[in-house]
Nucleic acid binder design. Structure first.
Lengths: 324, 324
DNA sequence: TAACGCGCTGACAACGTTGTCTGCCGGGTC
DNA sequence: GACCCGGCAGACAACGTTGTCAGCGCGTTA
């Protein structure tokens, strides 16, 4: 910038004015400055600008894994909103590790992001206190913050969706419905289990519940164990997209009624077509990002807790008749 | 930091030393400083640090769309390498619009990213000249830069993979093989068309080529047109994952030999199981990122042009017999 | 005892911007 | 002719760090 100024024969401040389109510069001078900028290939140093102005025009996003379609969709939606507001997105995947979640958040904060959107992996978010007190808005998405922290949160209706799935299966005569899902330490898994359990009522049987990592071996083994029971399940409810796919592989062509949480591409091309409880990841991302920008615009109302509806898409796999 | 210094009764510089773990601070002093830091909830201002040191420890990534599984996989791999090097990732989706690609790149540059990984949407990258001259390393992935710019590039063997797909189909007796793919203005689409055409040799028939946006309507219409020919195609080669899925929908159960470019989840659960030419997006991301960091470490050899092999995964859909 | 080295600490400038304030100059008004 | 006003331009400080260099006190050495 100094070079540009001397090349154009003006003061530093005048260049700054031209770069920022501030009024009060003679058109001819401005033209000279612009010419010098082009000639020297000058680009404003955003770090210095940030330092001086105090706002970074950057938002941080922490998710579980970009390579997971759910989070990829959410990411993309957040990105669009963020860029639409003239900001940039810093993102990172926690890989479901609380330590990495915290590291990412702290690194983002050290970079003075204007705001944060977090899909938490951990249980304890008291480490966010200093940031919250410093006025950095934070929005939690998909899962709520741990105890003692109350901030804006956007969740899906996990329990309700699970209940709907179970009622759908029961409506087709199923009484023995198994559940395959994530570790109940994960909020969404616990909520879906809750919805499953409540909808089943007295039919609940914990021998039909498996909450282990979604590896093909584990799912296959648990499924075999359940099918070997005296009163085996006739239907399956899977707790998220990964389990649905793994279960389909484990079933290996055996027909069993199935409803999965999370929609996925091709669900309608499989045989039978797979019924699902669909969330809208892009919607969730958009809502979270819009909420964040409302806070950035100064809205300081009490924390919002938004629950997005989910919807059952019946495609046939839930309608397979129960035996007998 | 000033506050911390006065709270601990030391000079600014001493706090700086403690924060950076520099040697030459008395343990007791360091402890006092750390206590003050905790008490005040101090976090270093990374912008100021960047301004002073000149390196941002940030890498920019421009892709086409995070929500596309191919780019999501690539993104995740880049992210892991970048974070493994203690840097942060700024990312953005161009949505296949050259203007947005350029905007993103320029914004990243204004933020003084240390390096860039770009999946280009446009044809003209001369706007990168100033950055390249300023010494910012740039790596192109998936598609090469436009004319006049020669930088590190990581591509897949698109033409070779397409050729392999066609030879596979021809090996099963197919002579009339249709191609559905993206606009040939997109590098990968053009290369795959080239491989298709060369492998077919004299059997090439341009009436069997459709390069339109992958909407269900367009694909369905083109497919119907081709099937209505006197000598209709008996097999289909699709130019990327989106076309494969759309074609499967358009076929709607009709059996037709098929090989698709790009592997996708569930390809092995469809009926028939779908054969594909598989790329490894994570590999591509990793290679591109490692290359970038090699440059950042000072390697200033001539630009590298890496071509990653692809691999045919025969699952059955390519082996459907040709009629007659 | 003077000189020296070493471990620790601090003062100061600089990084590249932008906000504030002041100054210059030409033209219009009384 | 004295005054003021408005358009334009520049000087300067400040943002929060870190690199450089200088200084202080204490123990060791000649």
């Amino acid at each position: 910038m100094k070079d540009v100024a001397s090349a154009a024969g003006v003061a530093l401040k005048t260049v700054s004015r031209v770069v920022n389109g501030e009024p009060g510069v003679h058109p001819a001078t401005a033209e000279r400055v612009r010419a010098a900028i082009d000639r020297l290939g000058y680009r404003r140093n955003e770090s210095a600008r940030v330092l001086r102005r105090g706002r970074t025009a950057t938002v941080g996003l922490v998710i579980e894994d970009v390579a997971d379609p759910f989070y990829a969709g959410l990411s993309r939606a957040v990105e669009d909103v963020v860029i639409g507001h003239g900001c940039l997105l810093l993102s990172g995947s926690s890989g479901e590790e609380p330590g990495r979640e915290r590291e990412l958040v702290e690194t983002f904060c050290a970079r003075r992001v204007d705001g944060l959107i977090v899909v938490p992996a951990g249980e304890d978010h008291t480490y966010l206190r200093p940031e919250l007190e410093a006025g950095t808005p934070v929005v939690f998405a998909d899962r709520p913050p741990g105890a003692g922290i109350d901030v804006d949160t956007v969740l899906a209706d996990n329990a309700g969706g699970a209940g709907e799935a179970i009622r759908h299966l029961m409506g087709h005569g199923h009484r023995r419905i198994a559940f395959l899902g994530d570790d109940p330490g994960i909020f969404t898994a616990a909520e879906r289990l809750k919805g499953y359990r409540e909808a089943l009522g007295g039919l609940f049987d914990e021998r039909l519940v498996s909450m282990r990592p979604p590896s093909l071996e584990a799912v296959r083994a648990d499924l075999a164990r359940m099918l070997a029971l005296d009163d085996p399940p006739s239907a399956l409810f899977t707790g998220n997209g990964r389990y649905t796919v793994t279960a389909l592989r484990a079933l290996d062509g055996r027909r069993m009624a199935l409803v999965g949480f999370d929609d996925f591409e091709l669900a309608d091309l499989l045989t039978p077509r797979v019924s699902v409880v669909a969330q809208d990841p892009a919607w969730m991302g958009r809502v979270a990002a819009e909420l964040l920008f409302r806070r950035l615009r100064g809205d300081s109302g009490p924390p919002e807790h938004i629950e997005l509806p989910v919807r059952l898409i019946a495609r046939g796999s839930g309608e397979l008749l129960a035996p007998g």
